[in-house]
Amino acid sequence: MAKVRGTGFAAVNYPTGMHLGGDPTQSLIHMTPAGDFVVTMASVDLGQGLRTVLAQIAAETLGVPYESIVVETADTDTGPHCTGTFASRTTHRAGNAVVMAAQEARKAMLEVAGELLEASPEDLETDGDGNIHIKGVAERSVSVGEVAGAAHFGYGKTIAGRGAYLKPPSPMDPETGECDPDSTQAHACTIVEVEVDTETGMVEVLDMKSVYEVGQQVNPDLVKGQIVGGSWMGIGHALYETTAPGYPAIDPAPVDFQNYLQPGASEMPEVTCEVLEYPAESGPYGGKGVGEMVTNGPIPAIVNAINNALDVRITQIPVTPEVILRALDEKRAQAGG
């Protein structure tokens, strides 16, 4: 019996936004004379696609084409304050700030359009393709570009908006812990199948399936990118990664990728995921945060699967071959003793 298989799963929730609130993000939006919009943020894109997501949210609220949105980030001279990109907060916090700024800019845009169409702004709607028309009367229409030209050169008006999203601070009661720590909760459940070699202690993750519930997805492909990348990182955390293999001893201390082990492409199983959407009341269009939770399900699911395969009780990570062999030795000793 050299190779045994097991399955395990884990259910997790994850809070959106900095714990205990009090972390603001602000946004500025302005229209150019050509009728496109610049969204200016101090938020930082780490590769997750923040600029894309904020452009989608801005386009949705303004009612203009996605392609007409430019998102500028990460400059303290131009970008209004953002606490930073962490705590699964950016889609929610920056997204909400963009919604607010876009609402104000949209209002200004519709006022100018109303002057051009001789109609009240409340009677106007956008078609999302770059036109504004009187509700129900598609022919009585101006383009967003015409509105921009008129605003800049005819009326001398700015079409711009400010957004400031803040979840108020809620300090924890030191005695009971009472607090309002987050804006919403996202959920996930991950199922894993592993194969463990009882002679070498090596683990192979054969299959990983997950269900995520992240509110309204702004961009499903990018959500999936987080899930797949996080699944891989979860394998790394569960089986390989540590800067202190002798923890709590400080040696050995890996200083390179030869000694700080991570899974490679060959250790990555097929990852299946299904995403449920229960929109969050507080989120931009119902969105919740997904960036961090994606390692949290895979890690315990893998360890549960290993325990299931071997009928042992391992409770630490990383589950290195050494940990597995030690657990098997203990099991044998108990059975023998």
Partner: peptide, 22 residues
């Protein structure tokens, strides 16, 4: 436990969907 009334919960549905997937 931190004395906030739960909202936006969908853990039950997520686990049920995962059980179907499994």
């Amino acid at each position: 436990a931190h004395r906030k009334v739960n909202e936006d919960a969908a853990m039950v549905e997520t686990i049920q969907a995962a059980a179907r997937l499994a």
